[in-house]
Design a protein around this nucleic acid. Structure first.
Lengths: 265, 265
DNA sequence: AAGTGGTCTAGACCACAAA
DNA sequence: TTGTGGTCTAGACCACTTG
């Protein structure tokens, strides 16, 4: 009695795809269908070479893509093994508020409530997480949808990290929108929770005190230095975050346009 | 006056890393520091070959890694260009409740509140999202931390997709824990929001009615067929979700152990 | 038309972990 | 000790897109 693996179809159907993508798709199919359970050893690169009649580099590229997607784990000398499904990790899209509101067919608005420049206050835990102390800008404002409160924003911008913020007109443009054009690649963290609105918050949002709200806090660093912290408070019925989890698709890559910038070379 | 790019250091420091990783790290450094702004054209693979004295495949691997990480976009004939920072996308980790509670140094507990087998109810929007109708198991229960309510779980399991669930003892093991061992690779969606606890919910959680709660809903499919839907309700002060966003690190990969499964070969 | 990225080959050497 | 994955080379052809 043979316990051998269900056999690959060596990508007979799927014309037009690069060979390495077809191999990846075949392997991914065996894994997603459950035919190859977690812990199963997938074929060696050497075996894939003969099965598909390709060079080792091609087989290796296919297998490495599965490893990058998290479907398998690779171990020297042992082979590559189907991983356990990581149901706990998902990709979360935090929408731009203006785009989100507009997408709903509503008119977007922004109202500046207050703005002040001051030194860092290490006493506040949210602010301390940004790291180094220094002068900063504190901004509070309201995002509106069709003129009605949609989210209450409380933000801190480090003036060491973004000195140009001093001259920005945050009555006309929301800090988030302004920062989009003024911060390079960055690392960050989100924390999502629920909270009851306090008296001041509920007044701004037009809710009764203690009304349930979704709280989204975001810290942003650049090169390890704190740039900005923001807390957004949404009325419970106004907003919901969505996150998807799925193994990579191995569909052919598509390219979007990029605004070219003038440069030498 | 020359507008040429700030020069790469060709990975002089960073011994021990594979060459392609050093190239990736060098390029990523230029991008993250802002020296190469969005839209900037990074060196051609051909140029990297001469700068690093490597084969084109090596340069290509380094550049492709940046594209996979989303730092650049590649366009035929035009070159590779620094992308705009996607501050809206983050990786969200949904913890296992038992592990989460234990990690806090508290005792984890699970109490089954109710369980019933019934046909699908397409009238409920949450349930309809799973897709096909069919017999299902409805389960309600409470996750406890040190004996105190931590999360209220309402779950539906499709008996077509997981017939073994009929015989599982959900008084002894939570549905989430049971499903972990009985579902293969799957796709899913999370929706995160806030809500006020209704009368029944607040009673189970030991809160006053209307108390703010974090609501986490999850739909899970396998091969496009609905497997399970769950809604978890957390008291606002009991729980918070964290999500990180950052360009890929290019640090050397580490391998974890995998439980091997007996199989032919 | 020219030159880029996309793909692939047929080798090679090494480190490392499993047998 | 053996054989796997990890890395790399020096070529090649093709498709596509931009100039």
């Amino acid at each position: 009695m043979n316990v051998s693996a269900p056999s690959l179809n060596t990508g007979a159907g799927r014309p037009g795809l690069p060979l390495h993508a077809r191999i990846s798709a075949d392997l991914a199919g065996m894994i997603r269908s459950g035919a190859w359970p977690p812990g199963w050893r997938i074929p060696f690169e050497h075996e894939l070479m003969s099965q598909y009649g390709c060079a080792r580099a091609t087989a290796g590229k296919a297998v490495q893509a599965l490893a990058d997607a998290g479907l398998i784990e690779r171990r020297r000398r042992a082979g590559s093994f189907v991983a356990r499904p990581p149901i706990q990790t998902a990709v979360l899209e935090i929408p731009e508020l203006q785009a989100e509101v507009t997408a709903r067919g509503q008119a977007y608005g922004w109202t500046l409530i207050g703005r002040c420049e001051r030194g860092a206050d290490r006493g506040r835990p949210d602010e301390a997480m940004l790291g180094e102390a220094g002068p900063c800008l504190e901004i509070e404002g309201l995002h509106l949808a069709d003129g009605r409160p949609f989210a209450l924003e409380s933000r801190i911008i480090s003036l060491d990290a973004a000195p140009e913020a001093r001259d920005a007109d945050f009555a006309a443009v929301s800090p988030g929108g302004w920062l989009l054009g003024h911060v390079a690649w960055s690392e960050g963290e989100h924390r999502i929770g629920a909270a009851g609105a306090d008296r001041a918050q509920s007044a701004h949002l037009g809710l009764r005190a203690g009304a349930p709200c979704l709280s989204l806090r975001r810290w942003t660093w650049r090169q390890g230095r704190g740039v900005t912290f923001v807390r957004l408070l949404f009325p419970a019925d106004a907003f919901e975050l969505a996150a998807r989890f799925a193994p990579r698709t191995f569909a052919p890559r598509t390219f979007g346009p990029v605004d070219d910038k003038a440069q030498g070379g």
